[in-house]
Amino acid sequence: MTLRTGSTTEESRAPAAVPPVRPAPKKKQKNFDGYWPWLFVLPTLLGVLGFYIWPIIQTGYLSFTETGPFGGEEFIGLDNYQTMLADGNVGQALINTLVYTVIVLAGIPIALLMANLVNQPGLKFASFYRVLFFMPYIAMPTAVALVWRMIYNGDFGILNWLLSLVGIDGPYWTSTPGFAIVSVGIVGMWASLGFGIIILGAALKNISPEYYEAAQLDGATKWKQFTAITVPLVTPSLFFVTIISVINGFQLFDLLYAIMGQYNPALVQSQSLVYIFYNQAFIQNDKGYAAAIGMLILVVIGIVTFFQFRMQKKWVNYV
């Protein structure tokens, strides 16, 4: 409550359709915070360098070598990358990974709407609904995959049974190329909604009710309030959820494997980049080539993330 008293001039402008924008960083006004920041970041930085960056550098090096199955490598320059460019499976996997990521991203607006619904003031059973929505996020992939396989089963699944009631002859969801990656994407979306709802729900609670009250006085509809107040004010969290969803989407592996199963004729057309990495590194024992695919994943996500950060100035409003 103390916060509410510390009002600023900006506050009196509420409710603005676009919330107050953070003042531009005061560049001229020096000044570094001395050694303090290093105390804060050094432990993390050292751990990250030792446990993560070093492996990435090693992987980068391996991608220019041909490796023996149990170590020992020979420098071969760009050969692995040339093989990769010529490998149709890699291109297909990149497309599949993108399709999956887009489907998971499509879950973000749904998560926002659901978070909005469940965060309405005075809603009864709100915590109950929140727990329901969150449950898929707790799920262990191997356990839910079995259930989803039963739902998707082309001959005996309930999804096709429901469709047959309305006269639609459903496909073999998980074993038809094209359908398969979409089916996996829907499970991915289902599993990650809970994450979006938590983060976005927290952000929603940050919005002062005064904005809405004022908007109501102006006669704004619920939808107008949602688009003009809610969405702009949660953009930092939306930005965060988007970045994380893209990164997680690109790491599709367990879920694909668990849902499609090992006897799937569509597996080759439906594999993801990480799937190819895993297959090359641990099944085919070609760690050099696998490393090149690992670097491809890093570069693709890196580029996408870089542009997201560049673009954020256009749509993300920090308070």
Partner: peptide
């Protein structure tokens, strides 16, 4: 093959 994938042999 699709039937054998959806419902294992």
């Amino acid at each position: 093959l699709q039937q054998l994938s959806d419902t294992p042999h």
